[in-house]
Nucleic acid binder design. Structure first.
Lengths: 390, 390
DNA sequence: GTGAAAGCGCTAACAA
DNA sequence: TTGTTAGCGCTTTCAC
């Protein structure tokens, strides 16, 4: 009697093992072709029979998966995966199978799920770029170059704009971390010691490079000394004795390095250096230009914190009939493209943006490869480009 | 005898049930604190004991998961998930538990995995933006506005730059589909009927809006007629009889609509309209400007396909001492910001970019909500902004 | 050369 | 109020 019990029990046990939903599904999936509603009804039937969780079964998603391919070809998901991941694995797949799988993938319009892959691999091959804005020439160029550079290294770039708000910057950061980017390029400066995210990233040795600033992580910045010195020398050569410097005050971190470099150079050369401040908008610069014309006692040359503001300043001077470079000499900073075609074209202290981007991406990639990489701070020299405005 | 067999078998069966790796892991995980290497060794031990797959266990990932929180608080993953997803669900969690969970999440620096969530929800709350470039004023403004708009609707924007290459555009598209974006904003024009991706998206009724073009999906474009007509009227009022139109030839689709609108308007008004072509770079426009000065028989006013090229053209004219607007009148198209501060400031036919972006995001969101939404084609009127260049 | 199955982190239906 | 469990789509180890 017990023997019978035993046998029945064994049978049931076997059954229950082989009735594991995943296994049933595999079997059934292999039987039918890729018609979503058949899949749907089958799952539903299984669900009714075995009380399977129906959650997202209810919303039929049309995306094709490796299972659909497997079913069509008559192999298992594993085989399909091996074929599609390039098969660099030691496991070999027969050419017949491989071709069938590839064909099926094409026929069914298969797009591998990035998320599934990210989940299992723990890597996303995506970098994040935290940036204040992307609609000004300098930053859009930066973003553009960064995306290009990342792509050339086999990564994607996830751009995240902070609109220069500290709060938003931390949000962006959270977002990037939730998205599990492999590394981050920082082109803003809110993240500083003491902020929770900062400490976390520091502690995790998270692959980060700071671009244009330096507040604790590896950084890549412009060295303003050579450029500013060339500018001062150039202006001195032209007979200027008093040099103005226009700072857009919201970007203190940006402006200060430049200002300090200029002041040092002026001091060295015995030139007067006068700092003027305005808001970091082109309209403010324009206003500053207009105001400048009202004083008879103004510097004969002004270096402006950015090309963008320089163009505003020139415009403001022009509004008051003070022309550049005859009435006053203007030099911008950054070396953006729009200084080339402006009238007058802009003499500028150019940053090597491409090289900065390249170096910072490289730092991040190195840190991805090895989190123990020591901190690096790279300075990239600026240089004067002489055009018409000074 | 068989009874003993039976009992042993039952025991073994029970054991095997309770030794399901996931269950063991849960139990053990709840016992220890969040120390990655302990986790690692435990898994490894289990692995040795039960021959568990060690795959990614080998690369200890430091990311904190809901399991870590659950373990710390002493509840299950499900509870944690309920707390963290906002608990809008009917299930209620005691305040004690909730607080403990939230605290633990903060203490452990928990960042929910976007990918895991995307996988299970089938939604990413991410839109893709396919765009040709982001370093020119018009497109960087477009990208910027699109990101802002998406964000205000609770979505993120994944920007994907095609560098105006058809091939690259299709790659970008694949990328976005692999990343399972919920919808796509198209600001380029390579995707046309016949292309595999096009047919696929069409068939899937994938949420797409075409911005600036119209090749088969819902679209949002500028209506150039009013703006061009205003421009023609304005120029006519100033006594111009021959109007030139400068097209950057690579953007035929862009240029043609504008040209056709202008030609129609000129015909209506009895004005001559002369089309000049150049490459779509600012340098080419500059060259075109220089060339224009060489002919005595040139139009007295030129409308340029974009502000960007207009600035190049003005610069080219300026190089040859033909000044704007005295020597020749120039009108740009697009209404980008840098026309405001240029010298002379640029008269332009402005697009309402913000509204275009808003409408197209809305279309995409509507299609996400309901794929059966019929196709929509929205035209947004342009208008003349008079400044100094004409 | 291919199949079986576990696991990545999370959600949600159902059970208790 | 909380726990249990299946499943999202994919990779990879192990076994045959």
């Amino acid at each position: 009697m017990s023997t019978i019990f035993f046998l029945i029990y064994m049978f049931l046990n076997m059954l229950s093992t082989y009735l594991k939903p995943e296994i049933i599904r595999n079997r059934i999936n292999n039987t039918f072709d890729n018609i979503a509603y058949i899949r749907y009804y089958i799952r539903k039937l299984i669900g009714q029979a075995k009380s399977i969780n129906l959650q997202s079964t209810l919303s039929i998603d049309m995306a094709v998966t490796i299972r659909d391919i497997a079913r069509r070809v008559g192999v298992t998901k594993a085989t399909v995966s091996l074929v599609l991941t390039g098969g660099k694995s030691s496991v070999r797949i027969s050419d017949t199978t491989r071709n069938k799988v590839l064909e099926a993938a094409k026929a069914l319009n298969y797009f591998p799920s990035f998320h599934a892959r990210a989940l299992v691999k723990g890597r996303t091959f995506t970098l994040g770029l935290v940036i204040g804005e992307i609609h000004s020439p300098y930053y859009s160029e930066l973003a553009s170059l960064a995306m290009e550079e990342a792509e050339s290294q086999g990564y994607h770039m996830l751009v995240s704009v902070t609109r220069w708000s500290v709060e938003k910057e931390l949000e962006c950061l959270d977002m990037l971390l939730r998205r599990r980017v492999d590394g981050i390029l920082f082109a803003t400066a809110a993240l500083r010691p003491g902020v929770r995210q900062f400490d976390y990233l520091q502690e995790q040795k998270f692959p980060i490079a700071h671009l244009g600033f330096s507040t604790g992580f590896s950084s890549v910045r412009s060295d303003w000394e050579p450029g500013m010195d060339q500018a001062a020398e150039y202006l001195q050569g032209k007979g200027h004795r008093r040099i103005g410097f226009l700072v857009g005050s919201d970007f203190e971190l940006v402006g200060d390095e430049r200002r300090i470099a200029l002041e040092a150079s002026c001091a060295k050369r015995g030139l007067a250096c006068e700092v003027v401040r305005c808001s970091p908008t082109i309209e403010a610069a324009r206003l500053a230009g207009a105001q400048m014309t009202r004083s008879n006692d103004r510097p004969s040359a002004v270096i402006v914190q950015s090309d963008h503001l320089a163009i505003g300043l020139i415009r403001g001077l022009h509004d008051q009939a003070v022309h550049v470079p005859d009435g006053i000499s203007i030099i911008g900073c950054d070396g953006t493209r729009d200084g080339e075609s402006s009238i007058p074209s802009l003499t500028t202290i150019a940053q090597d943006l491409r090289r900065q981007v390249r170096e910072s991406v490289e730092i991040v990639l190195q840190m991805i490869a090895n989190r123990e990489m020591p901190r690096k701070d790279i300075l990239i020299p600026t240089k004067l480009i002489v055009r018409d405005s000074a």
